[in-house]
């Protein structure tokens, strides 16, 4: 119904009939456009895009590198911390050992000193006891001689008297006087 009023087929064939002149125009215009774009537009755009691409890649690379570095530093730091902790432990350990050794030595020394002092005191006491015994013997001998002279009215020869008295005295037991020094 519409087709009869739209005479496309009868007078519309110019639509599909190629015109040589127009075709050459097209070729010319397209050619010039191609040359202009290829010379002036595309290289710049390509360059700009490639540059940005490169910039993005570079910054990704550098970010990665920075991260790796940071990781490395962190690992190193951790290692050092570990080391420091170990060292500190060692120091504490050795200090404790040293302290214990000192304590032990000090105790031993003190003990030694104490026993030395005790021995010295013992020796002093014994020496004093011996001295006292010696004196007592002499006193007793002198007294005995004096008493004998009074009884016999005769002066004993000094050397004889002394030998006799000392013989007698040595037979006497002074163990009761010397007391604890004997044991």
């Amino acid at each position: 119904m519409l087709a009869s009023h739209i005479p496309l087929a009868s007078s519309g064939n110019f639509l599909v009939k190629p015109g040589i002149g127009l075709m050459i125009w097209t070729l010319l215009v397209f050619g010039i456009t191609l040359v202009l774009l290829a010379r002036l537009a595309f290289p710049r755009i390509t360059e700009a895009l490639d540059k940005r691409q490169k910039a993005i890649e570079d910054s990704i690379d550098s970010a990665e590198r920075t991260r790796e570095e940071a990781d490395k530093i962190l690992a190193e730091y951790r290692e050092r911390l570990q080391e420091a902790r170990g060292q500190a432990d060692e120091i504490v350990q050795s200090a404790r050992q040293m302290g214990e050794t000192h304590e032990r030595e000090a105790k031993e020394q003190a003990k030694e000193l104490a026993s030395d002092a005790a021995q010295r005191a013992q020796r002093d006491i014994e020496a004093a006891t011996q001295r006292a015994l010696q004196e007592l013997r002499r006193e007793v001998a002198d007294l005995t001689i004096a008493a004998t002279e009074k009884v016999t009215r005769k002066t004993l020869d000094s050397a004889d008297q002394k030998r006799l008295v000392e013989e007698a005295l040595s037979e006497l037991d002074f163990s009761g006087v010397s007391g604890s020094s004997q044991n």
Binding site: T33, L36, L37, L40, A41, R44, I45, A48
Partner: peptide, 11 residues
């Protein structure tokens, strides 16, 4: 041409 070259110049 104009639009592409203009844009190319001010990338």
């Amino acid at each position: 041409c104009v639009s592409m070259i203009y844009i190319a110049r001010r990338m």
